[in-house]
Amino acid sequence: MRVITGIAKGKKLETLEGMDVRPTTDRVKEGMFSAIQFDLENSLVLDLFAGSGQLGIEALSRGACSAVFVDNSKKSLDIVKNNLTKTDFMDKSLLFNMNSMDFLKITDKKFDIIFLDPPYNKGILLEILPMLTNKLNFNGKIICEHEKNLVLPEKIENLRLKKTYKYGKINVSMYLFDGEDE
Score class of each variant (00 low, 15 high):
residue 83 N to A: 07
residue 90 M to K: 13
residue 100 S to Q: 01
residue 144 C to G: 09
residue 124 I to W: 02
residue 108 D to A: 04
residue 147 E to H: 14
residue 85 T to S: 15
residue 86 K to I: 06
residue 96 F to H: 13
residue 89 F to G: 12
residue 137 N to S: 11
residue 137 N to L: 13
residue 131 M to R: 09
residue 130 P to W: 01
residue 118 P to Y: 07
residue 123 G to T: 04
residue 93 S to R: 06
residue 108 D to W: 00
residue 106 I to H: 13
residue 100 S to W: 00
residue 107 T to W: 11
residue 149 N to I: 10
residue 82 N to G: 03
residue 111 F to Y: 12
residue 90 M to L: 15
residue 88 D to M: 14
residue 99 N to R: 02
residue 124 I to T: 01
residue 139 N to T: 11
residue 112 D to L: 02
residue 110 K to Y: 01
residue 123 G to P: 08
residue 85 T to M: 13
residue 94 L to G: 09
residue 142 I to D: 12
residue 87 T to V: 02
residue 100 S to K: 02
residue 132 L to Q: 07
residue 91 D to Y: 12
residue 117 D to N: 15
residue 148 K to H: 11
residue 127 E to R: 15
residue 115 F to L: 10
residue 127 E to M: 07
residue 135 K to M: 05
residue 120 Y to L: 07
residue 102 D to Q: 13
residue 125 L to M: 14
residue 147 E to Y: 10
residue 112 D to V: 02
residue 114 I to T: 01
residue 84 L to P: 02
residue 134 N to C: 07
residue 98 M to Q: 15
residue 95 L to R: 09
residue 98 M to I: 08
residue 90 M to G: 06
residue 82 N to F: 00
residue 125 L to T: 15
residue 84 L to V: 05
residue 87 T to F: 06
residue 114 I to W: 04
residue 153 P to G: 11
residue 149 N to G: 05
residue 137 N to G: 05
residue 132 L to W: 05
residue 101 M to L: 15
residue 126 L to T: 14
residue 92 K to L: 10
residue 135 K to Y: 07
residue 113 I to W: 02
residue 153 P to D: 08
residue 95 L to V: 06
residue 96 F to C: 13
residue 139 N to Q: 14
residue 149 N to E: 15
residue 110 K to N: 12
residue 107 T to Q: 09
residue 109 K to F: 14
residue 117 D to A: 03
residue 102 D to P: 00
residue 136 L to G: 10
residue 150 L to T: 14
residue 145 E to I: 00
residue 105 K to S: 14
residue 127 E to F: 01
residue 118 P to W: 03
residue 116 L to T: 00
residue 94 L to K: 15
residue 94 L to D: 14
residue 87 T to R: 02
residue 153 P to I: 03
residue 121 N to Q: 13
residue 99 N to Q: 08
residue 141 K to H: 03
residue 89 F to K: 05
residue 152 L to H: 10
residue 116 L to H: 01
residue 153 P to A: 04
residue 102 D to V: 07
residue 100 S to R: 00
residue 118 P to T: 04
residue 113 I to D: 06
residue 139 N to F: 01
residue 82 N to R: 15
residue 136 L to E: 07
residue 128 I to M: 09
residue 122 K to G: 01
residue 92 K to F: 06
residue 109 K to P: 04
residue 127 E to G: 14
residue 145 E to T: 00
residue 101 M to W: 00
residue 89 F to T: 01
residue 142 I to F: 08
residue 82 N to L: 10
residue 99 N to H: 08
residue 145 E to V: 00
residue 107 T to G: 06
residue 141 K to P: 04
residue 111 F to G: 06
residue 86 K to E: 12
residue 149 N to F: 08
residue 137 N to C: 13
residue 114 I to K: 04
residue 128 I to F: 00
residue 92 K to P: 07
residue 83 N to G: 04
residue 151 V to G: 01
residue 123 G to K: 02
residue 93 S to L: 07
residue 85 T to F: 09
residue 144 C to L: 02
residue 149 N to S: 14
residue 98 M to C: 14
